[in-house]
Write a protein that binds this DNA or RNA. Sequence first.
DNA 1: ACGCGTTGGTTGTCGTTACAACTAACACCA
DNA 2: TGGTGTTAGTTGTAACGACAACCAACGCGT
Lengths: 173, 173
Amino acid sequence: MSTETRWLSTEESAAWVRLVALTELLPGALDAQLLRDAGLTHFEYGALMALADASDRTMRMTELAARTNATLPRLSHVARRLEERGLIERHPCPEDRRATNATITETGLALLESAAPGHVDTVRANVLDALTPEQLGQLYEIAGAVLAQLDPDERLTATSCQFSEGPALARAG
Amino acid sequence: MSTETRWLSTEESAAWVRLVALTELLPGALDAQLLRDAGLTHFEYGALMALADASDRTMRMTELAARTNATLPRLSHVARRLEERGLIERHPCPEDRRATNATITETGLALLESAAPGHVDTVRANVLDALTPEQLGQLYEIAGAVLAQLDPDERLTATSCQFSEGPALARAG
DNA sequence: ACGCGTTGGTTGTCGTTACAACTAACACCA
DNA sequence: TGGTGTTAGTTGTAACGACAACCAACGCGT
């Protein structure tokens, strides 16, 4: 909406092109490995992991959608498929009859446990092991700065510390 | 396939969660603005921009696919839609009759010019203006390190300097 | 000239996602 | 009690992308 567009400098273009390439290639790589080895998309894996992390292994659909950076319709479709596969169950919430509680089943937990090592290996191979400790911190700050623009209210993007407690699964997100 | 999985440390998890959120939210934000203001997906925008940058405004389908980090079937579908809208043209390549040359039309160039300012504004608002110059360089290095894993052969990921020359469009990618 | 493997590109089908429309239930106030 | 606005969730439709199958053309050896 400015009268004069500020075009990108050489440095800005170079960084931007790489970031775009990353956002286009990384999801596919994650999906490919998980689909091949566990029959799960990365999004499904993340949703199951969020449920496995939750107290009572149960979460409201709306909260789960926020944790997984998804819209509610998207999550609803995915939840139906996961339920048909026996990986989660959905029950109406007694306290608020509009709401639905999603719970991961034992089958879902077992699948998650079998999938987690391969996924972590992939994350290391493609991303983490390619970065120095300094770069890891830089990535944290940079992504945080961008997310503050994309998601100003922090409704999405599980900000809480889901990594401090519990079993190994809690760190395989 | 290690016998013992190296789970993620707290720092690794935190950075990874943010990177995942970024890769999930950023494409949608780019698509939303471009679709609303120009009727183009971000992928279509990138493909048109690559053609606008090419000599003779023409490129082979395979090379265009590489520049846009796409598979050939995907590009083929997109090219058909763009051609139906009059934004590009496809002609058989005389030198190699298996190949197809895609050319951006005047209509396509005009659409691109009208779309570029809004897109650049969006890129600045969501990403670039949130980063310090140091972070811009760090992002370039980090994304480069990750892409080296995701795309070892550098078949994809336009590595060449498409930003050094020409009109404003060349920097609006 | 023929055969064979490879490359360039298109097409069909299916799964997934976005968007909009819709239902049900809650909250609040009169 | 009834009305209004908001929230929670599901469903339908249409668009997009992945994957596999397919066809045509090239190149090379014989």
